[in-house]
Write a protein that binds this DNA or RNA. Structure first.
Lengths: 224, 224
DNA sequence: ACAAATATAATAGTAATACTCCTATTTACC
DNA sequence: GGTAAATAGGAGTATTACTATTATATTTGT
């Protein structure tokens, strides 16, 4: 990709000072991803992060109001990044079936680092997504956060996948429900695969991929 | 149902003293469900619960080690209760399609209070399930909690639904994946319906019911 | 009916969390 | 080289998440 200058944008209300504009900010993001991965979000604190990256706790507060918004920043960045990757993987392709296949390979496959994007290691980030991303949804501040546009990236991603689904079958009535089922389902099953493996059917070599392909194929072909 | 004496059992390691054995315990459970509903689990504390039900904070600690285990108690009770309801709704029925329909009506319909079960208001409890139940899954203690059997109720529920799916189509390769997709999906979409309604397709009168019926029907009929 | 056991109330205390605020020092920039 | 901005470093506060203790009820067995 050479020297493309592309930055993933997140709603500015997520941060106090944009972490991708300074070395300290980038250090905070990198350290936060690693430490959330190690400790889990519940046990992660700004104090521990400060010790981990050898930065005063108070300096972290100059970038993020609290740990919830730091997590939301990361998740939002991920949604926007994935939205962009989905966009790239479907552009210039005629066949909508092929588009959907590319999307599935993206979300079901391993994420490999693409170092186009500045300060975030996508591979490390994608490790914490299955377990931590739900935590930005289910809380009482959601109505406030909606007003500030914190879910626009997620909606855009869902609508992009829905668009491809409708290209395959314009009569299919539930493109968004199917898209969220796939995206969130993959996160959940990835987590189960690690922690509740008895709940993953082992009838094929790649049950997750096969399950979702089977689900999508049969849902979309039938109503045609 | 008259005077059946049935109690839903949860793993004893979830509590210090069984809350359904005393008036105070039942008061704690009732108050906890209400307060978690109002505040959300993150803002819920034992101190606030104590003030709410006019009981010293320290007395609550004699029943539950911490608020996470109190939530887990509630969620576990819900899984076991739902497992029992699913069992009841399929017993003595010959036709597996009809069994699955009954299960779907159970998990997709409104929960109405059935006062067979002692100390828990199922209707109130089911209000907090969509937003709070995920919070017992995604944390670093899961491996410890698995060892203590905290997920056995959930597994039993999934396996019961899977069993019916296999009755309908013994060749279907992903009965458990489909069961979790339905159960967890319904929780998610219920929450979205309230907080992110633009992500729910409005192409039919009852999109959630229709989506899941469509999904299941097409997944199960195809492979036959 | 009474003693013994158990449960609850009421209060105090502690370490950690989630911040805010202030000042000294360093770094960046014109 | 001077000024503004950023960071380091630390102090301080309210809340959270507990533990511990003692006094007072309440229940239970005989």
């Amino acid at each position: 990709m050479g020297n493309l200058h592309i930055t993933i944008q997140v709603p500015p209300a997520l941060y106090i000072k944009n972490p991708d504009t300074s070395a300290l900010g980038r250090k905070i993001i990198k350290g936060a991803i690693e430490l959330i991965d190690r400790l889990g979000f519940e046990n992660f604190t700004f104090k521990k992060l400060g010790e981990y990256i050898k930065v005063p706790e108070s300096s972290i507060y100059r970038y993020f109001k609290n740990k919830h918004l730091l997590l939301f920043y990361l998740i939002n960045w991920y949604w926007n990044w994935l939205d962009y990757k989905v966009y790239l993987s479907t552009i210039n392709i005629e066949n909508p079936d092929k588009k959907l296949e590319n999307i599935l390979n993206l979300v079901l496959g391993d994420i490999d680092e693409d170092r186009v994007f500045s300060h975030i290691n996508e591979k490390a980030l994608s490790k914490i997504i299955p377990s931590e991303s739900v935590k930005v949804f289910y809380n009482k501040q959601i109505e406030e956060e909606k007003k500030q546009g914190f879910f626009e990236g997620y909606k855009s991603l869902i609508k992009r996948i829905s668009g491809v689904i409708l290209e395959i079958n314009p009569a299919y009535p539930f493109p968004q429900l199917l898209s969220t089922t796939i995206l969130e389902g993959i996160n959940r099953e990835r987590y189960y695969d690690e922690h509740l493996p008895s709940l993953i059917d082992k009838t094929t070599d790649q049950p997750l991929i096969d399950f979702y392909k089977h689900l999508i194929f049969n849902s979309l072909k039938q109503t045609k």
